[in-house]
Amino acid sequence: MEKIVHSLKSFRYTKEIRKILSEIQPGFRDKHDLNSIFKDLYEKKIISEAEFMAMETKMLLNRFTLLMEHQFNDLNCGVYLYDEKEKKLWNGSSSRVEPLYNEYSHGLSVINDIPDGDDIPIYGKGVIAITNVEKGEDIISLNHKRDLLKSSYKSICCCPLQYNDKMIGHTVLFSKEIREFTPDDLNSFNRYNELIEEKLAKMKAHLLSVIK
């Protein structure tokens, strides 16, 4: 905590903020104190309005992943933002996802995940559950199997984040065991996503400007 507070109080906008944001854990007990620090930095004009909003949005996403991991036991949750211009994914909140996969997914080109004749990745269309990544022959398994398995993930479930029919990104539940996702799981996953979609749609550009 002291390291993060010291850095936040002293920094001027550099790459350090990206490192700070990546270190904030979903279960961070002093998040209210951290929010106060963000506000204080903004009021003192140490950080810009865009940076302040990005930090607030990052905290929202971290709380969301904590909620998801509480509801879906033994799973890791990641939130990924879609850059429609670059056709890339950026890690919005994935601090409990395996580091190997985080390194792979941050700035990942997803051109090969976009079906012919479409303009967004397939997981931007609807919820997709993959029970066995190793044996999967779907586009997601084929494109990402190697890195998922290297990170010990055997099953995944992807759910789009969208608002006003526009893709914001998607969330993923990762399992290190073969898992059959039930219809109730898929419906719950979709409902939880709705909790953050409107807010994230408004703040996506600010957050991308900081985490990229």
Rank of each mutant, 00 (worst) to 15 (best):
L149E: 03
L149V: 11
S151F: 08
S151Y: 10
S151V: 09
S151G: 10
S152H: 14
S152N: 14
Y153S: 00
Y153L: 00
Y153N: 00
Y153I: 02
Y153G: 00
K154W: 11
K154D: 09
S155E: 06
I156N: 01
I156D: 00
C157S: 08
C157W: 00
C158F: 11
C159P: 05
C159I: 12
C159L: 09
C159F: 07
P160G: 04
L161D: 04
Q162V: 11
Q162N: 15
Q162H: 14
Y163P: 05
N164T: 13
N164G: 09
N164P: 07
D165Y: 04
K166Q: 08
K166W: 05
M167N: 12
M167K: 11
I168C: 01
I168H: 01
I168G: 00
G169D: 00
G169K: 00
H170C: 14
H170D: 13
T171F: 04
T171H: 02
T171K: 03
V172I: 14
L173Q: 04
L173H: 09
L173T: 09
F174T: 07
F174R: 05
F174C: 07
K176L: 05
K176G: 07
E177G: 10
I178Q: 09
I178R: 06
R179P: 02
R179T: 04
E180F: 04
E180N: 05
F181D: 12
T182W: 07
T182S: 13
P183C: 06
P183F: 08
D184R: 07
D185N: 05
D185P: 00
D185S: 03
D185L: 01
L186K: 14
L186S: 15
L186D: 13
L186N: 14
S188D: 12
F189M: 08
F189Q: 03
N190S: 12
N193R: 00
N193S: 02
N193E: 03
N193I: 00
E194Q: 11
L195T: 11
I196D: 01
I196H: 02
E197M: 10
E198A: 14
E198P: 13
E198T: 10
